[in-house]
Amino acid sequence: MTINVTTPLTKEKSSALCAGDIIAITGTIYTARDAAHKRMLEDYERLGYFPFDMENAIIYYAGPSPAKPGEVIGSAGPTTSYRMDAYAPFLLDKGETGMIGKGARNAEVLDAMKRNGAVYFAATGGAAALISSHIKKAEVIAYDDLGAEAIHKLYVEDFPCVVVVDSLGNNLYESEKAKYRTL
């Protein structure tokens, strides 16, 4: 059964989600990947604010391909999350409640998630054309010079993902791997 989640992802909503839940997100999410994360933290240090409101925000680790004429966005699947591990704890402490990506996270991120009641979602890596069909509006709101790595504000409808790590620290990657391991 699919659980519908709307943004902003308040802590009340995030704490109700469990590892293994199949999710459809509707609302506003923000793309940011390697270079955008680095710059967001540098900017915060210098200016004291982020390019968008971090409180209850969901960040999607993605760098879309260019939109064809008449299209909202190009293909837009998730990138591997661990490269954002160096930056994620800081953002989680500043109000971010959801991250969408793919792949494992380190202990610091998992601790920061628990501390802040945040959730980590996985979108299907490589299913970029399918995912794009759920993106209804896209606008670059910061760091345009970074090209694909610019921060995009997206409006998504029924964006498909799975809760991999919930706010209590339950980890679907670990539990499912153990279930099917026969080695």
Partner: peptide
Amino acid sequence: IGKEMLCQITKNADIAKANNVPICQD
């Protein structure tokens, strides 16, 4: 869940082919 992921992956390849768009953004 594994089966669902594989279904999404082949559906994605079908969409990319039909719409002439990249299979993956990378």
